[in-house]
């Protein structure tokens, strides 16, 4: 993850900024140029809800070095209230106790950092609600 990309994506990573198609209402996260459902090119900017349900998840046991102290941890696909799906790490829980359909809420956390001297990278995770 480059510093430029972290900076460019901060709207969606910090505030869950998404796009809703003005043609058919489909929600895209991240936003896109053309709606794959109705072909419209017009979107309005919205913010996704911070409440949702786990659609599915997997448990990571062999992590990248940045997440050594959090292992094992789960990564889930979450359907948010009012539309929109995110893929996020699940924090503050025993991953063995998670269930599909479980309620979660979106929180703001440190995601990783560029070594000991580099930038710290923040964004969303989910926790059991």
């Amino acid at each position: 993850m480059t510093v430029a990309r972290i900076w460019r994506e901060r709207g969606r990573r910090y505030r869950l900024e998404a796009a809703r198609c003005k043609g058919c209402g489909k929600v895209f996260f991240p936003g896109r140029l053309v709606c794959d459902k109705c072909g419209s090119r017009e979107f309005e900017e919205i913010r996704l809800s911070d409440k949702g349900k786990i659609l599915t998840y997997t448990v990571i046991r062999v992590p990248p070095p940045a997440h050594t102290y959090e292992t094992p941890y789960a990564v889930a696909i979450v359907e948010l209230e009012g539309g929109g799906r995110i893929t996020a790490m699940v924090a503050d829980c025993d991953p063995e106790k998670l269930e599909i359909g479980q309620n979660v809420r979106v929180v703001f956390r440190k995601i990783s950092q560029d070594g000991e001297k580099g930038i710290k990278f923040y964004g969303y995770k989910v926790v059991p609600a």
């Binding site: 997440h67 102290y69 959090e70 790490m89 924090a91 503050d92 929180v107 703001f108 956390r109 440190k110 995601i111 710290k120 923040y122 995770k125």
Partner: peptide, 16 residues
């Protein structure tokens, strides 16, 4: 604090 928490993340939650 969890490994993913610091003064910034705690401040964000309190402010929210």
């Amino acid at each position: 604090p969890g490994p993913d928490q610091d003064t910034i993340t705690i401040s964000v939650e309190a402010a929210r």
